[in-house]
């Protein structure tokens, strides 16, 4: 009933989970860059790493669920906490899926879009990376969660704008791409990367409500 051992263990698991998510952001960034720069070997390595990280996150999530339920920890808040973990895990899954789609569909990306796509990836990943300290704050200092979330919203809106500009460029300023299917393909990948920042925003909304609930 009063197990500090289990409490410490679950704290460690949550920390590991957040670290795993943080690492996946770095790998995703690297993966997109390596794909665009045609570094096949490194790209394969990135795919393997993100897959392992996703596996690890799933296991950690399961362990966190087990420990919170079997030891009846946080009866009032565990629903919220597990939903948060689930949504953060969703972001990691989404990143892994996107990177795998590069490998499966091998989209043709013209050189003039490389910088834009790298920047979009950077911004989307920054949105996710900004959610992580907010999530950590929720556990220790719920009052400061809101102060950290504004960055997520900024990155998300920047990602929206950039994705929109990429799509316009593809459909209006690139006559050398003749096939509509190719344009659709480019839009599709832009959407995938942008959607990651949308998921980060969703988690930010959730965290902001959770923090209010926790504030005395």
């Amino acid at each position: 009933m009063f197990s500090f051992k289990q409490a410490n263990k679950s704290i460690q698991l949550i920390e590991d989970f957040l670290n795993t998510l943080d690492q996946s952001c770095i790998i995703f960034r690297e993966g997109v860059k390596n794909y665009l720069h045609k570094n096949q070997g490194n790209f394969r390595d990135n795919l393997q790493t993100i897959s392992k990280l996703e596996n690890k996150a799933d296991q950690l999530k399961k362990q966190i669920e087990d420990i919170l339920y079997t030891h009846s920890l946080m009866p009032q808040l565990r629903g919220d906490i597990l939903r948060l973990i689930e949504n953060l895990d969703g972001i990691l899954n989404q990143s892994k899926e996107s990177l795998f789609q590069f490998d499966v569909e091998v989209p043709y990306i013209p050189e003039e879009l490389h910088n834009d796509l790298i920047q979009l990836t950077d911004i989307s990943m920054s949105a996710v990376e900004s959610v992580i300290p907010s999530a950590r704050s929720y556990f220790r200092d719920p009052g400061s969660v809101k102060d950290k979330l504004h960055r997520v919203y900024l990155y998300e809106s920047e990602a929206d704008k950039l994705a929109d500009s990429i799509k316009r460029k593809v459909f209006q300023q690139m006559p050398h791409i003749e096939k509509l299917s190719q344009k659709f393909h480019l839009r599709y990948f832009t959407l995938h990367i942008e959607a990651i920042s949308d998921s980060a925003e969703k988690v930010a909304d959730m965290l902001s409500i959770m923090a209010i609930k926790r504030t005395l």
Binding site: F2, F4, A7, N8, I11, L73, M74, R140, D141
Partner: peptide
């Protein structure tokens, strides 16, 4: 506010 105890540990203390 000052001690910033982790919510899971706080749960045990509160119990």
């Amino acid at each position: 506010k000052r001690t910033k105890i982790h919510v899971i540990k706080l749960d045990t203390y509160i119990r």
